[in-house]
Design a protein around this nucleic acid. Structure first.
Length: 302
DNA sequence: CGTTTTTGACCAGCGC
DNA sequence: GCGCTGGTCAAAAACG
């Protein structure tokens, strides 16, 4: 299940600031990790009626390289993890680099030989990915969908493992991975890959068209990224028993695809902020949004 | 008893 | 070709 960082012996301040969560670039030539861009859009801006979370300032970041997610230096967090709310991560730092997601991934390879000979031509293409950084005590945030964990791996320079989840809906191939930031254990990085092809199983009712949805929402929805919503009580709402370490409340995310009724009410997160990274040429191409926002050099190809 | 998690093995891509 | 690394599989275990 979720790992709690409690077991890590490290202190935040002992981490090198430069490497963030995943400096997988170690072998690589990437000077920096991701990128972040930000500032550009705050769909969940504070003044947006929908989201009135004071501290939360999500930023949209960029693109995630196909294999590695690097982290941003974005957060140049003070050595003290908990200390100030992290500054706006996004806006100040503009280092980003996006790696283009390879477009043609058509491999004509055959299936795997041993493990899975059964399935024939299934090419695994990478879909756009979106990463969110959320300041949270819990690793796995509720987002309204059901996920099945299918793997966990140690992250290279991090004491925290990365967990891999797949949407349990059949025919929905959305995947997500969750890991804690190496530099700031209070931050959880959630990366979504693909878009749900079905409504959230946990949403009580989509109800009317969200007339009040703002453009911000639309933007988020367009990318299929989850937005934070209030803690609507889900009917499920089972309280997970657990670790005394965790908070009583949990985050809720809602990835609504269209109109989501939700708004974030900030259940109780005093500080929760997140950054988003999105990748995907598809949306780049299609919408051109990133291009608009991102500096051209941001998209780099390797 | 069905579903999800755990966990080591396996695979594919990349650098050397 | 070998080794490293990120990602996935799948059998067993755990969970409810």
């Amino acid at each position: 299940m979720e790992d709690v960082l409690g077991n890590s012996p490290f202190l935040a301040n002992s981490f090198p600031l430069e490497s963030v969560f995943d400096s997988s670039c170690e072998g690589d030539k990437f000077p920096l990790g991701f990128m972040e861009l930000l500032g550009a859009q705050d769909f969940t801006s504070p003044h947006n009626p929908l989201f009135h979370i004071p501290q939360q300032v999500p930023s949209f970041v960029t693109d995630v390289p196909p294999m590695k997610i690097e982290s941003p230096d974005t957060f140049n967090l003070p050595a003290t993890p908990n200390s100030s709310s992290i500054s706006s991560a996004s806006s100040d730092a503009v280092n980003d680099e996006a790696v283009k997601v390879d477009d043609q991934e058509e491999d004509q390879q055959k299936n795997k030989k041993q493990l899975k000979p059964k399935k024939t031509n299934q090419k695994r293409q990478r879909e756009p990915r979106f990463a969110f950084m959320t300041k949270s005590e819990v690793d796995h945030l509720e987002d309204g969908y059901r996920w099945r964990k299918y793997g966990q791996k140690a992250v290279k320079n991090s004491p925290f493992p990365r967990s891999y989840y797949r949407c349990t809906s059949t025919s929905c191939n959305v995947k997500k991975r969750v890991e804690r930031s190496f530099t700031d254990p209070s931050i959880v990085v959630t990366t979504y890959e693909g878009q749900h092809t079905h409504p959230s199983p946990l949403l009580p009712r989509p109800s009317l068209g969200g007339s009040h949805l703002s453009s911000g929402m639309a933007t988020g929805a367009a990318f299929g990224m989850p937005m934070q919503r209030a803690q609507t009580h889900y009917f499920h709402h089972h309280h997970h028993h657990l670790h005394h370490q965790q908070h009583p409340f949990r985050n809720t995310f809602s990835p609504l695809g269209h109109n989501g009724p939700s708004i974030n009410a900030g259940t109780g997160f005093l500080h929760e902020r997140r950054l988003c990274t999105s990748a995907g040429e598809s949306f780049l191409t299609d919408h051109g949004l990133l291009q608009d926002i991102l500096p051209s050099h941001m998209v780099k190809e390797e």
